[in-house]
C-alpha cells in the first residue's frame, strides 16, 4: 500500500499536469482547424504536413527577421497558401481528400527537409528568437494551480481564446451555420442562395492557418526557436482523432487533446515501472477506445431518433 502511495505521488505530480497542458496545446490548435474542415465535409488527413510547414516557416521567419512575431506572421501567411493549395484540389478540382491530404504530408516532409538543409545547412535549426512565456506575478504563489498553470508559452493561453472564438463562430453565427450546412446538406445551402464551395474554401484556408499556428507554436513556443525534420511527429493525426472524437466541436476537441496530453505524460512517468514499448502504446490504445465509444454512442443516438420517428 505504501509502495502504491509512493508511486501515486511520483506519477501524479504537478509536473504531470504541467506537461499535459504543454502537450495538448499544439494538438488542440490544429484540432480547431480540423473541426472547421470536418464541418465543411472535408476529411482532412493533411494536418500533420500543415503543422510541419508552420513549424519550419515559423523558425525561418524568426531567423530572417530576428523576431518570433515575424516568424508567426510568416507561418500564418504560409498557412493561407497551404489552405488555398488544399482548397484548390479538394474544393475546386474535387479530388480525393485522402490522397491530397497524404500527398500534402509527404510534400511537407520533403519541402521542409530540403529547405532546412539548403538554408540552415543542417537537418534542423535552433536558437532563433522565440515567443515569450507568460508569468503572472504572484500567481506562482497559489499552491498547485500556480505550478500547473503559470509560466507557460503564450499560445497555451491563447488556445483557450481560440477555442471560445471558434466555438462561437461555428455554433452562434450565420457563417458557422452555413459552414455546417455546407458539409451536411450542401444542396439545401445552395437553395438558400449560398455556395457551399465558399464555406469549404473558408474552412480549408482557416484550417491551414490554424495548423500552421500550431506548428509555429511547436517550434517557437513549445521549443525556443528550434526546427527539426519531421518534428510534427504525427500530432496532426492525433488532432484528427480529437476532431472525430469531439464530433467537430472545438471545446470537446480541446478536452480530447488534454486527455491525450494527460496519457502521454502519464506514460512517460510510468516508464520507470513498465517497459517504454508498452507506455508508448497508451495514446493509440486510447484512440481505439475513444473511437469505439464514438461509434457506439452515435449508433445509439441514431436508433433513438429512428424510434422517435416510428412513433
Amino acid at each position: 500500500m505504501n509502495d502504491f502511495g509512493l508511486l501515486f505521488n511520483t506519477v501524479f505530480s504537478t509536473g504531470l499536469f504541467n506537461e499535459m497542458l504543454r502537450r495538448a496545446t499544439p494538438v488542440a490548435i490544429a484540432a480547431i482547424g480540423g473541426a472547421l474542415t470536418q464541418h465543411a465535409g472535408i476529411m482532412n488527413i493533411g494536418m500533420d504536413g500543415m503543422i510541419l510547414m508552420g513549424a519550419f516557416f515559423g523558425v525561418l521567419g524568426s531567423s530572417i527577421f530576428g523576431s518570433a512575431w515575424a516568424g508567426l506572421g510568416l507561418a500564418v501567411l504560409v498557412g493561407v497558401l497551404v489552405g488555398l493549395f488544399f482548397g484548390l484540389f479538394v474544393v475546386k478540382f474535387k479530388s480525393d481528400e485522402f490522397i491530397i491530404g497524404t500527398a500534402l504530408n509527404t510534400f511537407a516532409v520533403g519541402l521542409t527537409s530540403f529547405l532546412s538543409r539548403s538554408i540552415f545547412g543542417t537537418q534542423g535549426a535552433k536558437g532563433y528568437p522565440s515567443l515569450p512565456n507568460v508569468t503572472i506575478p504572484g500567481f506562482d504563489k497559489v499552491p498547485v494551480l500556480g505550478a500547473i498553470l503559470n509560466g507557460h508559452s503564450l499560445f497555451v493561453y491563447l488556445t483557450w481564446l481560440l477555442v471560445l472564438l471558434f466555438y462561437l463562430y461555428i455554433y452562434r453565427t450565420p457563417q458557422g451555420f452555413w459552414l455546417r450546412a455546407s458539409g451536411e446538406k450542401p444542396q439545401t445551402l445552395r437553395t438558400a442562395g449560398i455556395a457551399p464551395e465558399r464555406m469549404k474554401w473558408t474552412a480549408s484556408i482557416l484550417c491551414g492557418v490554424l495548423c500552421c499556428i500550431a506548428g509555429a507554436h511547436l517550434s517557437l513556443g513549445y521549443l525556443n526557436g528550434t526546427f527539426a525534420e519531421k518534428m510534427s511527429n504525427s500530432r496532426g493525426y492525433i488532432a484528427f482523432a480529437c476532431v472525430i472524437f469531439a464530433a467537430s466541436n472545438p471545446a470537446k476537441a480541446y478536452l480530447a487533446a488534454l486527455m491525450f496530453g494527460f496519457f502521454d505524460a502519464i506514460g512517460l512517468r510510468l516508464q520507470a515501472y513498465i517497459s517504454s514499448d508498452l507506455t508508448s502504446i497508451i495514446p493509440y490504445a486510447i484512440t481505439i477506445i475513444m473511437m469505439t465509444y464514438v461509434v457506439v454512442s452515435t449508433r445509439k443516438k441514431r436508433e433513438k431518433i429512428h424510434r422517435r420517428a416510428d412513433i
Partner: peptide, 24 residues
Amino acid sequence: EVNYANSYDDPALGKDCAIALNDK
C-alpha cells in the same frame, strides 16, 4: 533515472522527457 523518448526526431518530446527527469 532513465526514460525513453520513443522518437529520434521530435525535440519537443525530448524536452518533456528531460523536464520529467529534472522533476525527479
